[in-house]
């Protein structure tokens, strides 16, 4: 029996009505172990104009590299206070921000280990299905051996790596088109 999956449709301009009630901009309560970080950025369209009606969803492992999900069979502890899910929307300047902890390393294909990363789904008017990308952390030596970054052309990998800010925290932008277009994945 095979039923084809239902077709995706855009979230449209008014998703806030349905989805804003469950925004999650702080993924980790204060007592969750891990290195706390603030990640902020902007979403820009093909004209470089801010996208003021975008929604980003985040998915990550805890600091031990364990996902709060039954299909993660690793013998590592799940922290009941940390779901690993975030949902943020952009403001009138196209900006978003969220607070979380740096995830641990999780298994990759063929016995590899992935570098710490956060999965991101991007939704907006004008996107008929979500875009999927990743946030990696700068200066992590594991990035060099990351099995997913290895699929990305070298000159485009930088779009997936957050930039440290002098005042603390990281900047990571979603560039929909152009020279610095963010890498989006296909599964």
């Amino acid at each position: 029996m095979h039923l084809p999956a239902t077709a995706s449709q855009t979230v449209g301009p008014y998703f806030a009505i349905g989805l804003d009630a469950l925004l999650r901009t702080d993924l980790a309560p204060a007592d969750v172990p891990g290195r706390r970080v603030m990640i902020a950025g902007r979403v820009l369209d093909g004209d470089g104009a801010p996208v003021t009606d975008a929604l980003l969803e985040l998915w990550q492992a805890n600091a031990e590299g364990k996902y709060a999900h039954p299909d993660d069979g690793q013998e590592r502890a799940v922290d009941p206070r940390f779901q690993g899910f975030g949902r943020v929307s952009t403001d009138a300047t196209g900006a978003f921000r969220f607070a979380t902890i740096v995830p641990g390393r999780v298994p990759g294909p063929d016995g590899t280990l992935q570098a710490p990363h956060i999965l991101v789904s991007v939704f907006m008017r004008g996107l008929l299905k979500q875009l999927v990308t990743r946030i990696y952390f700068p200066d992590d030596t594991a990035n060099a051996g990351d099995p997913v970054l290895a699929f990305v052309p070298t000159e485009r990998r930088g779009t997936l790596i957050a930039r440290p800010e002098p005042a603390g925290g990281f900047t990571w932008n979603v560039i929909l088109q152009g020279e610095d277009e963010t890498v989006f994945f296909d599964f």
């Binding site: 369209d45 093909g46 004209d47 104009a49 996208v51 907006m124 008017r125 004008g126 996107l127 008929l128 875009l131 997913v148 699929f151 990305v152 052309p153 485009r156 929909l176 088109q177 152009g178 277009e181 963010t182 890498v183 989006f184 994945f185 296909d186 599964f187």
Partner: peptide
């Protein structure tokens, strides 16, 4: 969709 769809091929992984 004109200004909001990716112009580069998605990276298959």
């Amino acid at each position: 969709t004109a200004k909001r769809s990716p112009t580069r091929p998605l990276v298959r992984m």
